[in-house]
Nucleic acid binder design. Structure first.
Lengths: 155, 155
DNA sequence: TTGTGTGGTTGCATCATAAAACCATGCGCC
DNA sequence: GGCGCATGGTTTTATGATGCAACCACACAA
């Protein structure tokens, strides 16, 4: 197989996420969707991507439960693509990517926008990883444990 | 050009991040590196990926300042690949991907590991986006603003 | 019926990826 | 000091993914 090695059966949750949204376009499509974009043509012109690729990606994300097709909404007879809760759950990933760029990009002056708290107009805080008791955690202060079996092994 | 449309000059920081780490393997390589993997062969066998691709990815990430090559460390005469601060800064992205999978994966029982606080052995908290004053923010409570110009326009 | 706009699908050229073969170096061994 | 083997890659070659352009389908209007 010279296929693009699927991570579908992988036990690592990171690999499993990448299986769904780890390609070039999906995260940008979700970014647009979070801004309220719903129509095929709007995705296409905003992202400047090929229509066939967009078509394939939208369908894949619908299959993954990230998007849903809604029959209409503003009168026109075409369907729309709206985020499911699973799709909206990608938001922290996008924020993490954004903040990584803001912190480490070699040409930060080329970054056009900052993410702000809508109420105050002030930049948001950096995402922080905290322990159950609220302690800030560095990567080294974390570790992986085997997932505990579900009670009754989920019959 | 039928190239894989580069986002290099894009003003969106998310696109810029994806330009560097948005491909199939880079994030998994960084995941391994955060676990302490440093050697070519170890990356290769842990990830089960083709050696040529690994070679290309490692070089690209070195070029991007995510990894550095260290001449040696444990006696053997080969070089190693170690994360830079920029590389370690990817950690929140990986955590966000992991948590997305944990929350929304269709087959969560296939996820093998959970991320825990090393001290207490307890699961870490979900990443949260907060305003400057500490208020929890939903996507809808955020917005984008043009980046303010640097003082003196960085003459 | 023709024309236009939206929402796609199809065809074909090109690029990226993957597997395997090959090459280079270091090292144990005799 | 030549032989085999492990490590760390590079080259070769086949195929899947991507991108552009052209085409098709449907709704609506004149």
């Amino acid at each position: 197989m010279v296929k693009r090695t699927s991570f579908e059966g992988d036990a690592c949750p990171i690999a499993r996420s990448l299986e769904a949204i780890g390609d070039w376009w999906s995260l940008l499509i979700i970014r647009e969707a979070l801004f309220g974009v719903r129509r095929f043509g709007e995705f296409q012109s905003n992202l400047g991507m090929a229509k066939n690729i967009l078509s394939v990606r939208l369908r894949a994300m619908v299959d993954h439960g990230i998007l849903t097709t809604a029959p209409a909404s503003d009168g026109s007879a075409y369907q729309e693509y709206v985020l499911t809760p699973k799709g909206r759950g990608v938001f922290p990933v996008l924020v993490a990517l954004r903040q990584w760029s803001e912190e480490f990009d070699d040409r930060p002056e080329e970054i056009a926008t900052i993410l702000v708290d809508r109420d105050k107009g002030r930049p948001v805080k950096k995402l922080e990883l905290r322990a159950e008791d609220g302690r800030l955690l560095t990567p080294a202060e974390t570790t992986l444990k085997p997932r505990p079996a579900r009670r009754r092994s989920a019959g």
